[in-house]
């Protein structure tokens, strides 16, 4: 379900596995999928921490997005991640924002 719209089953993320010939799917086995999911969360958190947000797994079926002040939202998939992150952070999450890029570049050395 889209966490923002309430549309049931209507909004998987494009990187989610799809049972269709030709579609690029990662994580064939259950353990591969768990590993993929763990890495996704880790990568997402590297970005989200710039906005004082964290993402956690919720029983392997959803994600929990939190602010440092405890505001919490559950999202079903990564399609809702960025709109919801902007909503609870109360500001745009813009990958073209020069101040954000400068922080990343400085961290990168």
């Amino acid at each position: 379900m889209c966490a923002l719209c309430g549309v049931i089953g209507g909004n998987d993320h494009w990187t989610d596995p799809v049972a269709r010939d030709g579609v690029y799917v990662r994580g064939g086995s259950p353990s591969d999928r768990r590993r993929e999911r763990t890495r996704r969360i880790s990568e997402a958190n590297q970005i989200l921490r710039l906005f004082a947000l964290t993402l956690d797994d919720w029983q392997g079926s959803a994600y929990v997005l939190r602010t440092l002040t405890g505001k919490t939202e559950i999202i079903d998939n990564l399609a809702a991640l960025w709109p919801m992150a902007e909503r609870i952070a109360g500001r745009p999450i813009d990958p073209l924002d020069s101040s954000i890029l400068e922080r990343l570049e400085q961290a990168d050395g």
Partner: peptide
Amino acid sequence: IDWIAFGLWLSMLLNRH
């Protein structure tokens, strides 16, 4: 390139722009 990093970045970019 890293598929996961790319997926997160493109989703973030398209969400905002």
